[in-house]
């Protein structure tokens, strides 16, 4: 029988408190509960797309790529730039078809950009002490932010929403809007595609082998540099999709949006267990829900406490489970 520790009791106590709080809110206002859950799911999906870029890169070269959030921001700007160039807006009901093309183009843009960043900024530092690429990543984050600043100006820029924005159906008096469902509907296939690539394709196997032991991978005949570039490309693709979808969800872009969302998404990756794909998705959805529940429920603490809450939960989880929710202590060390 396992020994009951103080830490274990505290964990159970916390979970019970959260459950009581949820039931209390739900009984008071089921409609609000449903409404914020959908928002939480939508934001969680977007965070997941970004978090995967952090977790993939960390998994393979143990670098926290601080520039990743800003890559997502540039994706937003690029996608909305393409939309503006097309001259179409919501008045043409077929514009959302165009948006699919824009998502694809933005994914390619961000994938290529991320590969380029890896090639010029990180690869030359491959054998340098770990701190060197980390500082470089922070520098790269500032560079990308400044590109966004020059490109998009210092303020918030509104963009036309061309996703169909209508109430699809009503549950218990709550209208379910189409945009969150579309965002989740685009995200899930992307996540499945990514999982399939990593699990079942040859480049995916090369990624997993390189992540576990780069020299071991070289001895298998794996081109490690190319595999790392491929990993950055995958992360970039996901960030590009997130950029366009996020801009459509909030109908604005801003040069510094990547900083905050990047931080949240990175937190999601750590929460789930950095390096673990399913962990990143789970962490992202959890954070999406925590934020939405806190901001939208009758007994929530409100938006001004959202960040503090998210990071408090991160700290708590890392105290109880330092490797993250789905992370594992590597068993292969002999």
């Amino acid at each position: 029988m396992r020994q009951v520790t103080g830490k274990g009791l505290a964990a159970v106590g916390l979970l019970v408190a959260v459950a009581v709080w949820l039931v209390w809110n739900f009984s008071e206002s089921p409609a609000a509960f449903l409404r914020v859950s959908i928002i939480g799911l939508q934001n969680g999906a977007l965070y997941a797309l970004i978090a995967l870029g952090y977790t993939l890169v960390y998994g393979i070269i143990e670098l926290i790529n601080f520039a990743h959030g800003d890559l997502f921001m540039l994706g937003s700007l690029f996608g909305m730039f393409l939309l503006a160039q097309s001259g179409q807006d919501a008045s043409n009901p077929a514009t959302w078809l165009l948006l699919i093309g824009i998502i694809a183009a933005t994914m390619v843009f961000c994938g290529t950009l991320n590969m380029t960043i890896e090639r010029v900024a990180y690869r030359p530092l491959r054998n340098a002490p770990k701190l060197a690429p980390l500082i470089t990543a922070i520098g790269m984050s500032f560079i990308l932010q400044n590109i966004g600043l020059i490109w998009n100006g210092p303020g918030q820029v509104s963009v036309p929403v061309v996703l169909p924005n209508e109430v699809l159906f009503t549950i218990g008096g709550v209208g379910i809007n189409s945009i969150p469902l579309i965002i989740v509907g685009v995200t899930i296939p992307l996540l499945l595609l990514l999982t399939w690539i990593v699990r079942s394709t040859k480049p995916g196997k090369a990624m997993r082998a390189t992540a576990q032991d780069a020299d071991g991978a070289r001895l298998m005949g794996i081109n490690v540099n190319r595999t790392i570039a491929f990993t950055f490309a995958l992360g970039g693709l996901m960030a590009g999709a997130a950029g366009v979808l996020y801009a459509q969800a909030v109908s604005t872009t801003r040069w510094d949006q990547g900083f905050q969302l990047g931080l949240i998404s990175f937190t999601a990756a750590v929460l789930g267990g950095i390096g673990n794909l399913r962990g990143a998705v789970l962490g992202a959805v959890l954070i999406g829900f925590i934020q939405a529940l806190n901001e939208g429920l009758p007994h929530g603490a409100g938006a001004q406490w959202s960040q503090s809450l998210v990071f408090s939960i991160l700290i708590l989880i890392l105290v109880f489970k330092p490797e993250g929710l789905l992370g594992e202590q590597t068993p292969e060390k002999v």
Partner: peptide, 24 residues
């Protein structure tokens, strides 16, 4: 030359510490 090219030429190694992929 990089490692992957050397494998292609026909040299394989069972390395010190084995370097097997433990999670696979």
């Amino acid at each position: 030359r990089p490692g992957h090219e050397i494998v292609k030429l026909g040299i394989a190694q069972s390395p010190e510490g084995r370097k097997i992929f433990g999670r696979m």
